[in-house]
Design a protein around this nucleic acid. Structure first.
Lengths: 200, 200
DNA sequence: GCGAAAAAAGAACGACCGTTCTATTATTCT
DNA sequence: AGAATAATAGAACGGTCGTTCTTTTTTCGC
């Protein structure tokens, strides 16, 4: 006895994620979103009991998109370095397609929410933590496969890889630097070199 | 014939930079700023002809602060690696003190303005470009001093260093990770190792 | 197809936004 | 000191925000 509702709700969230990528979670407005979807403000609002609840659900929807588009395909690749490369390439894809819209929604949200306690911040932090843990775990697997050196600090690796992507995002989004992705790839290769098992 | 005005104007901008660090340039509001300074909304507004003009001036003021607090002291150190280390340490100081408030205002502004054409975005882009150029130029000096390998790509170096700071900011601000700075230092050291003249 | 229940629309609210205009108070110059 | 001018305050504007309430329309089980 609840079908149509869930359908439009899904449509709303899809549009909301894209809109929030452009204008941020703060800039995401009930009225604006309603107009884009040709809905009434109150009709849309009824699906979420409050604005902050909408924000949380937008973050949830974006996380699902990221998991399906980046993590899942990479997990299909063989363990070790190939999987790490796949993770990185898919991540670049994500950033590139996000760049065509308003940039990565997580980067925008991180800047907005870093000092705004509440459920939205909690959601974002948990998602980012999960993602960094995922990278670290993948690196751990690479150690076990003998691809990474046994003494590699996998959390350090995750943090450094994150930095590579953040720099790439900044350069391509704000600075409109067309060489951003090439530079990120280059940094990634030298990063791999550092963590790889040294050839004897 | 204009003294008192310039004084309060300065005081306004100082407060505005701090406030914008917390809530962003969008979240920075004329009324809120006026209340913090115990000024009337219109009295404050009169100093800037518009909100967007205020945003530009806030970015200008923050840039001056950054130049005086980070770049200038580092330029006092000897050329080459010492100057690069000073740049990095001062930059960490900046990020740390910014972290006690609402984070680095440039990081927040970058996320907000990356898809919002206008004078504020132009100002930010120019400032960031100048900063990255400054890093690259410092690296170039390090090459000339024989500290960096002659074939080092100084722009690549600047981009990688930027990534280290962005990751550090993200980890410390959003994730409240107390190990963020230590990790950034570690990444910085291995980054230096890559660009340093190899010992024979 | 009818009646119950869900979904959407409509109108209104108080609050705050940037901005303008006018009036009042401070400052500065001569 | 007093006139000229700059700085600040006050009140009001149209607009948009999130939210609530009431009403109409649509959906769905029987």
């Amino acid at each position: 006895m609840m079908r149509k509702g869930e359908l439009t709700r899904q449509a709303i969230l899809e549009r909301a994620v894209r809109l929030a990528s452009r204008v941020g979670l703060q800039g995401l407005t009930i009225g604006g979103l309603a107009e884009e979807l040709q809905l009434s403000k109150s009709g849309l609002f009824a699906h979420f009991r409050s604005k902050s609840s909408l924000e949380v659900e937008v973050l949830e929807a974006a996380t699902t998109l990221f998991t399906e588009g980046v993590i899942r395909p990479a997990l299909a690749r063989p363990r070790g370095e190939p999987r790490i490369r796949a993770l990185f390439e898919r991540w670049l894809d994500w950033a590139r397609s996000a760049a065509h819209e308003g940039g990565c929604i997580f980067v925008a949200a991180a800047a907005e929410l870093d000092d705004a306690p509440g459920p939205a911040r909690d959601k974002l932090v948990q998602g980012q933590k999960d993602w960094l843990d995922c990278i670290a775990q993948t690196a751990r697997t690479a150690i076990n496969e003998g691809h990474f050196r046994p003494d590699a600090d996998v959390e350090q690796f995750a943090s450094e890889l994150h930095g590579v992507m953040l720099a790439c995002h900044h350069a391509s989004r704000l600075m409109r630097d067309s060489k951003a992705e090439a530079r990120a790839r280059r940094t990634f290769e030298s990063l791999l070199n550092l963590y790889r098992t040294p050839k004897q």
